[in-house]
């Protein structure tokens, strides 16, 4: 692929999804676009680039964007954020909302649904405590294809072994030949929606917790700042934003501030976030 070809495709990606890729990602671009060429009956990548230049057909540009923005997802990825969610963040949010009995969680760029379903399983484990609560988990992604997989909730043997404890596999999955489907009760806890993070977030409503992990790393600085500002507009004043362990808002946006003692968790800078009480903090740290 020539530098010109790369620049053309990178420009399309940036414009449509916000994704920024540098020339060091040429290999990734090629490996992801070969299946797109095949699917569209295009002989090779040169031919694909030629077609993009020639007619910019919407379905083709859609397929290219989708192939490049699809990311790997595991159940309980990195483990720690889910422990923090369950033990440090959730108890305080639930106490603060005891009268309203309502909680909304957003899994942004949810891919094939593992993060949203991990949260659903944690909440299902706490079902007795949550009787009478209205709990909504919303998963969004720019790719319709991954959302279809998320909705069906069928995963390969490989996928159900990376991060998912076997006790959850036994409790919440049903074997379908060589594959595993998450039970309808858990699927019903999550609603999925095709959504581009660069669009107006307000249509999604307000959330108490946002998981947006390992997503913004693909955006350039101004786009990161824009998305963070928009997220602050739909997060409850005492809500929390979970980001990836290697990500930070520092130096990009001042609308969020780190929640002390909780790596990767951010609260609104303007209000006191639902930080854990000192003793619960210690129990989690210990």
């Amino acid at each position: 692929m020539t530098p010109d070809d790369f620049a053309l495709l990178a420009g399309i990606l940036k414009e449509r999804s916000g994704l920024s890729i540098g020339p060091e990602k040429t290999y990734l671009l090629e490996s992801r676009l070969n299946p797109v060429a095949k699917k569209n009956n295009i002989a090779n990548l040169d031919e694909l680039v030629a077609q993009v230049r020639l007619k910019r057909s919407e379905p083709l540009l859609h397929d290219i964007t989708e192939a490049m923005t699809t990311n790997e997802s595991f159940f309980f990825r990195d483990a720690k954020p889910f422990e923090t969610f369950e033990n440090a963040i959730l108890p305080n949010l639930l106490a603060d909302r005891a009268a309203k009995k309502s909680l909304r969680i957003w899994s942004a760029a949810c891919s094939t649904g593992q993060e949203a379903y991990s949260l659903a399983m944690i909440l299902r484990e706490m079902a007795p405590k949550l009787a009478g609560w209205r709990i909504e988990i919303v998963g969004t992604d720019i790719s319709q294809e991954v959302l279809e997989k998320a909705k069906v909730g069928i995963y390969s043997q490989f996928e159900v072994q990376r991060g998912l404890p076997v006790k959850y596999l036994m409790k919440y999955f049903t074997q379908v030949n060589e594959l595993w489907q998450i039970d309808s009760a858990i699927r019903a806890m999550v609603s999925y929606k095709e959504f581009n993070l660069l669009k107006d977030l307000k249509s999604l409503g307000t959330f108490d917790i946002i998981f947006c992990r390992n997503v913004l790393i693909y955006f350039d600085q101004p786009t990161k700042a824009q998305v963070l500002a928009a997220m602050s507009g739909i997060l409850a004043k005492d809500g929390c934003l979970f980001m990836g362990a290697a990500e930070t808002v520092l130096g990009i946006s001042d609308v969020f501030q780190p929640v002390p003692g909780q790596r990767g968790v951010y609260g609104m800078a303007t209000a006191a976030p639902a930080t854990p009480k000192l003793n619960s903090l210690q129990s989690v740290a210990g």
Binding site: Q157, V166, K167, L169, M170, T174, Q175, E178
Partner: peptide
């Protein structure tokens, strides 16, 4: 790799 073996093992 079937559920009955997993349950038996656990």
């Amino acid at each position: 790799n079937d559920m009955s073996h997993i349950v038996e093992a656990m």
